Amino acid sequence: MPHVIVEYTDNLGADARIPVLLETINGTLIAQDGVYPTGGIRSRAIELHNYRVADGKEDDAFVHVTLKIGAGRADAVKKRTCDTLFDAVKAHFADAFSRRYLALSLELVEFNESGSHKRNNIHDRFRRER
């Protein structure tokens, strides 16, 4: 953990720059002072082709980021993470935001550990690199 899912409307086109955004997201989470183990970070993007924004009369676009983390972190840690991550998303889309109608949002979801199953040997690589 954490997992990040970016949903974005296909009308963003080249403004989306999704590979750069995912790199930024992972880097932002890695930079959170070890709160999130690097080997557990997953980010992915889903381009939406079927959507409707507002009244549907403009070429409105949106990007919604869902951050999923395991339960148990302090509220201050969660707030810092969300603030930092949302700032990175806003910076990524600043140019597009200045030129077009665009809604940006971020949502935090905490997993209950009793309902989350994981198996991951990627962590081993990062333990060996220390």
Score class of each variant (00 low, 15 high):
L12F: 13
F62N: 02
L67V: 05
P37V: 08
T38D: 07
R125H: 15
R99Q: 10
V35H: 02
V109H: 11
K90Q: 12
V89W: 01
C82M: 08
R73C: 01
S116G: 08
L67W: 12
K68I: 07
S116C: 14
K78R: 11
L85D: 02
R17F: 02
V4D: 03
H92G: 06
L22E: 05
R99F: 04
I18T: 08
L21V: 08
L67G: 05
V63D: 03
G72F: 05
S98W: 01
A71W: 07
K90P: 01
F93Q: 09
L48N: 11
D60S: 15
N11F: 15
E110D: 10
H64V: 09
Y51H: 09
H64T: 08
L22N: 05
E113Q: 12
T9I: 14
I25S: 08
E110F: 12
R42E: 03
V20N: 03
K78S: 02
P2E: 00
L108E: 04
H123W: 14
R73A: 00
P37A: 15
V109C: 02
K68D: 03
I69L: 02
N120P: 06
K90S: 10
S114N: 13
R73K: 09
R119C: 13
I30F: 15
S98K: 07
A54W: 06
A74C: 00
H92R: 03
H64K: 01
L22M: 12
A31Q: 10
T24K: 12
R73F: 01
A103H: 01
E23P: 00
N121W: 15
E7R: 06
E47N: 12
L102C: 08
A45W: 07
P19S: 10
D15E: 11
R17M: 13
A16C: 07
D15N: 04
T28L: 02
